[in-house]
Amino acid sequence: MTEIQPLVEMRGVHKNYGTLQVLSGIDLEMWPGDRLVVIGPSGGGKSTLLRIMMGLEDIRRGEIDLLGKRYITGHEQSGKTRIDSTLRKQVGMVFQHYTLFPHLTIISNLTLAAIKTRGMPKPAALDKGMQLLKRLGLESKAQSYPSQLSGGQKQRVAIARALMLDPRLMLFDEVTSALDPELVAEVEAVMLELAEQQMPMMLVTHDMWFAKNIASRVIFCAGGVVVEDGPPEQVLGDPVNPRTREFIERVFHIKT
């Protein structure tokens, strides 16, 4: 019987901003098909964890593997972080503030990276981009500029832009936090659809109901470590750790 290889393996990841310790030893394994929701108090390092996974941040110590290959290593002695830039071909990320390129049309936002980094021929990229937009019901916006879209539409385009590159893992960093409440659902729907297609994802959200719906696994991060890790029913419904319990009670306003 062949052993299943973990998708992501983090070992002893430490991160600090100056003297502020943000992550103090994260150990985490993600399996193919995992939809991992990271919850926890603000300042607990949730977003930092995702940014590190994307290779956007240096780490002080620790290593991160993806599909058995070492991509990130933090060397404490030299203070340097080695990041294998091919990581970016495997991982896609969607940010809180859309970060679409304001000077490019929607379709160009989608195709630029595919053409430039994957060497995809332009017609093929356009074709793929249009298909993705059609799936999201945004094909009429292909020639518009980001400023002409609503927040929800922009965020769906940002998801499509990441999907263009066929990532093995998607990272969603509070992607609905900046949206007006009535626009949240359309973005969450896209993410749920991806979940149905077994797209592995790691996401940070403050929306506990959405977390419950989409997660296959929830981790509670506080004080720079993983405090609790388990299926959503457990971590969100009946947490073992008192710190998790207190947090859940506070955000749900209910006693469990």
Partner: peptide
């Protein structure tokens, strides 16, 4: 954020 996005897309 624009630089982050470029990074994440591997440009």
């Amino acid at each position: 954020e624009q630089y982050d996005a470029c990074h994440a897309l591997g440009l």
